[in-house]
Write a protein that binds this DNA or RNA. Structure first.
Length: 241
DNA sequence: AACTAAGCCAACCGCATTTGC
DNA sequence: CGCAAATGCGGTTGGCTTAGT
């Protein structure tokens, strides 16, 4: 362990507002080493800031591509629309607004659009309403799930009967061919049948069904958000208390 | 002028996820 | 595969500024 590291461990990390010198050291570090490896900033530059703190300072304040100044009406519209769709997924919203940070958007939304904290009684009422709403939404979700499972079942049944038909045709074809047809003809017939089958299945094949009917595994929250906005109709129900 | 409340924003904290070993 | 470290994310806090009384 070098002298700087042991000193930092003894004295602990610096907190609070960043000074111009600290900003300069961090900026120079990023210019030389690129973004990332934030924990080595302190070791290399002597900054007494944690990696987390350095990353935050860079991402929210020092990055050269940041847009300064107030949020424009256009940006505000985007924020509102995306928040209605995504909820409090500030980083996802920020990715759609180049030059704006998740922190900036979060702060903007909270100061401009977040509802004032209601009274205790109002909160109790809201909680009750929310619980009822959740029950209803779960019920609707389960209903959708059932519908989806039924659809998948139908598709599987269809496939099975297609396969059965195919097997029948193939055995018939084999018998006929053994009696009269030449190999090239058989191949052509088989190809036609497979094509035919694929054509009927193309709109509801297992793969495409899975792709269209299920939602991304990695994003269960999105599933609920989507369902909620469907159920809500106006899509503006992202109540946050 | 002094005080207070509200608005605003930078920074911190804790937790979740990703990555490297 | 399991663990620790690094990174990312959303919620919260604290302090400065401004507007209102």
């Amino acid at each position: 362990m070098d002298a700087i590291s042991s000193l930092m461990l003894q004295e602990g990390w610096r907190k609070g507002p960043w000074t111009a010198l600290e900003d300069r050291l961090l900026t120079e570090y990023v210019q030389q080493h690129g973004e990332g490896s934030w924990n080595s900033v302190a070791k290399i530059t002597g900054l007494r800031r944690s990696g987390k703190s350095c990353r935050l300072r860079w991402v929210n304040y020092l990055r050269p591509d940041l847009k300064r100044g107030k949020i424009t009406p256009d940006e505000e519209t985007v924020i509102l629309q995306l928040h209605a769709m995504l909820g409090n997924r500030w980083s996802a919203i920020a990715r759609c607004l180049p030059g704006r940070t998740d922190n900036e958007i979060k702060n903007y939304w909270r100061t401009h659009f977040k509802k004032a904290r209601p009274s205790r009684r109002a909160r109790a009422q809201l909680l009750h309403q929310y619980q009822l709403q959740q029950q209803e939404q779960r019920r609707q979700y389960l209903h959708l799930l059932q519908q989806q499972q039924q659809q998948q079942l139908m598709v599987m049944n269809q496939q099975q009967s297609h396969q059965h038909q195919l097997q029948l045709l193939m055995s018939q074809q084999q018998q006929e061919q053994e009696q009269q047809m030449s190999p090239p003809d058989q191949q052509a017939v088989m190809a036609a049948m497979v094509n035919n089958l694929q054509g009927t299945e193309s709109s509801c094949s297992p793969a495409s069904t899975a792709e269209h009917c299920t939602l991304p595994d990695d994003d269960d929250a999105l599933l609920w958000d989507s369902l909620w906005s469907l159920v809500d109709g106006d899509g503006s129900s992202g109540g946050e208390y």
